[in-house]
Design a protein around this nucleic acid. Structure first.
Ligand SMILES: [Mn+2]
Ligand SMILES: [Mn+2]
Ligand SMILES: [Zn+2]
Ligand SMILES: [Zn+2]
Lengths: 144, 144
DNA sequence: TTTTAAGTTGTAACCATTACAATTTAACAA
DNA sequence: TTGTTAAATTGTAATGGTTACAACTTAAAA
């Protein structure tokens, strides 16, 4: 049985074509896509697919912990099939998001600090903003 | 001369009553307020103040590096007079944001990693999501 | 005091997201 | 296989934070 079918069943979610397609898309596109990007791509193959379904499904998958919602862009949500703790780099110019393959060894220390305050941590997010390699290179060409 | 007057002049920004009021508000409210919260408060004393001015001013102050924009809430921007690098804890239930007084000693290590990739870092953001002390207590009362 | 570039204001538009009601369907049981 | 039903999907309308824009006002330099 397809992995995603099992994955949905494991989480007591009904298996639908729409959910499978969205899962496949998010898993195979490591660009942290937006709901609209997913929609624009899938609507070609599945013209009846509704954007509301994209939103509903992303919400459902996020709540199930299957995917991760990134709230780090100013105007839109982005989604990540990789829900392990990892950091991101966002380019202020082109908006692209890169994974930072670095596991912060201080998370535990910070978490202890926060727990001392009495709060309960459920998610850890870290990101950096700046100008990406590609944009810096393009600029370099422009400016000599 | 008032500190904020000097601050604006230092950044070659015209000194206006609106900017001073917004600066005073953000400096004295450590709650990471939204544009609307600032507007709702100031409009009482200054009924002619426009919400557009709030947005314009927050943008200007952010670009000048005087305040910090937090892009960590799903539906709105929040602003922080403290633009030093520090982490935040956001309660999923009540939405309150707490400062985490912890300077991550690994930022430099990560930055070196990112620089190796060719990107240029300009901002560092870290935050945690979960349930805050107050909400946990309220829940505790409810559930016995 | 005069000048003007910059800031402020109110209104309209934008756009990602959500609400809602009608329709369809996955999953279960007979 | 068929019938049942709760859940999912769909299209449309509404929401709400934010931005665009043009007229008006003003801080600050000459
Ligand atoms: Mn990622
Ligand atoms: Mn803060
Ligand atoms: Zn870039
Ligand atoms: Zn709370």
């Amino acid at each position: 049985m397809e992995t995603f079918v099992e994955l949905l069943k494991t989480h007591n979610l009904k298996v639908t074509q729409q959910r499978l397609e969205i899962l496949r898309y998010v898993e195979s596109h490591l660009t942290h896509p937006t709901a609209d990007e997913i929609f624009q791509s899938l609507t070609k193959k599945y013209p009846s697919l509704s954007k509301t379904t994209i939103y509903n499904t992303l919400e459902t998958l996020t709540n199930a912990g299957i995917i991760q919602r990134l709230t780090i862009c100013p105007t839109e949500h982005r989604y990540d099939f990789n829900h392990d703790m990892h950091h991101h780099f966002i380019c202020k110019q082109c908006g692209k998001i890169f994974d930072i393959h670095f596991t912060c060894p201080n998370v535990e220390t910070i978490e202890k600090d926060i727990l001392k305050d009495g709060h309960r941590i459920e998610e850890v997010h870290g990101y950096f903003r700046g100008k990406c390699k590609d944009c810096l290179n393009k600029e370099g060409v422009k400016n000599g």
